[in-house]
Design a protein around this nucleic acid. Structure first.
Lengths: 258, 258
DNA sequence: CAGTGGTCTAGACCACTCT
DNA sequence: GAGTGGTCTAGACCACTGT
């Protein structure tokens, strides 16, 4: 080997550490092309397999992408899309003193809707407190921005309460599904929100066209009537490379301490 | 090869798809031991390298862990720790109708604190609107639960306003850093919150002892005085396998639509 | 066509743990 | 010592793209 094993770690760790450092300090800037596998093989005096193992680490960290057969490139930084979700915005949002989130004002929005009657997953069954065998209406949507998939929004309703309503039509609902539910006598007065952070499933990778190393935020919102009956579960999948969840607050809950 | 290449995908894709399916449908339940690499090598009629590539996919999806030299195991599902952050809880939390988040009531809590005067990162400089060369006081904390690192909470203050205050002491601040700031004439009246979802840096992996395939939530809270002067940046790193962010709401912002 | 990365083979040696 | 996974070598063939 041309290079001796200095410091700790395996060869692939050393190589990926080197490249990560170059990305961090700007030697390799966003969009820049990395050396080819052959060049790295020569440079470090290891075999191609070892070089590929090092690059794979960086791919899985979301730092680089492989654009076959052109080469590896430093991944562009998050587009800094600003998308305040209502649930993350307890107070009206006012755009001041936050120059860092003023990008992406308005762009072409679009969505695909797919409505079906399905057996609910355990996740949905539990939150809707369904009996065994009870079916739900599923409204699955892929929201697009400028033609690219942007997030997923799947809502589930007990079939028993939305049967034959506008919720079952595979169109946009101008007044909003919540108003339809309210007209049916199930106005939502409370909601419980949960946010998970995890790696995507292959299905989510496909629907959102995710690159390797892209984690997601998994947001589950369960809506309840005043009587405490759950009537709706909405699951939003937010790709980490396309979303910044942001909101402003005024006092009263002085935040993270410390 | 003993197994023919049915359907799509490479051998490693087929193998990881098979195993992922078995994990999803419960054939392999949480904590179960996977077949050894040698067994999978025989079973699929490929070389060990191919089997390892398949397992690596599942590791990076956070589905399995490798416990050398014992074997690979299905990763335990998130401990479902419930930690409402103040900023995600616009209304007081009431524990009702949510049996799915009642675990982990009270456990041993602990934290390490490390205070220093540092040159701020670009991220902090921008949010604190600092001049070039201006220094900050950094309070870096690792919070532990039952002896395990649970999350990171790093706060940054302009050196010019907290010099010689209790904020610079590497102890817990009983009344809270925010009260100290207020006593210094910098009471925070507004805050901007941002939440990013991404893979961890090696430093975050080390501080939080993260397993491969564990993404993080990266929460930045910038606090402002009434006059609009930023006085504090708090960065919280929440490991995806240890956190569920959860809160309850009542009406007024009827959520995710759809 | 040459050059890129994607996949796979068939070995090898190592560190570690358990028996 | 046997068995596990971690790392690495030294090849091979393929699909795709650009010249």
């Amino acid at each position: 080997m041309a290079v001796k094993k200095v410091g700790r770690g395996s060869f692939k760790q050393q190589i990926s550490d080197d490249l990560r450092q170059q990305i961090a300090d700007g030697t390799l800037e966003a969009g820049a092309k990395l050396p080819t596998e052959a060049q790295l093989t020569d440079q470090y005096g290891v075999t191609r397999g070892t070089v590929r193992a090092a690059l794979e680490i960086l791919v899985n960290e979301g730092l680089i992408i492989s654009a076959r057969p052109v080469g590896h490139f430093v991944r562009d930084r998050k587009p800094m899309i600003f998308r305040p979700q209502a649930e993350f915005r307890p107070r009206p949002y006012t755009p001041e003193m936050d120059a860092f989130m003023t990008e992406n004002a308005s762009r072409d929005a679009d969505q695909d809707i797919e409505v079906s009657i399905v057996e609910p997953t355990a996740e949905v069954t539990k939150r809707l407190q369904l009996d065994a065998g009870e079916l739900v209406v599923s409204r699955r949507r892929v929201r697009h921005l400028d033609g690219e998939p942007f997030n997923l929004n799947d809502s589930f309703y007990p079939l028993s309460i939305v049967q034959d309503s506008a919720i079952m039509r595979p169109d946009n609902i101008p007044e909003g599904a919540n108003e339809v539910l309210a007209a049916l006598g199930y106005r939502q007065e409370r909601a419980i929100d949960e946010l998970y952070v995890r790696m995507p499933t292959p299905d989510e990778v496909r629907r959102l066209e995710l690159l390797p190393g892209t984690p997601i935020g998994y947001h589950i919102c369960t809506g309840y009537t005043e009587a405490g009956k759950p009537v709706r579960v909405a699951i939003t999948v937010l790709p980490g490379d396309r979303h910044v969840i942001s909101y402003e607050r005024r006092r009263e809950a002085p935040s993270d301490e410390a």
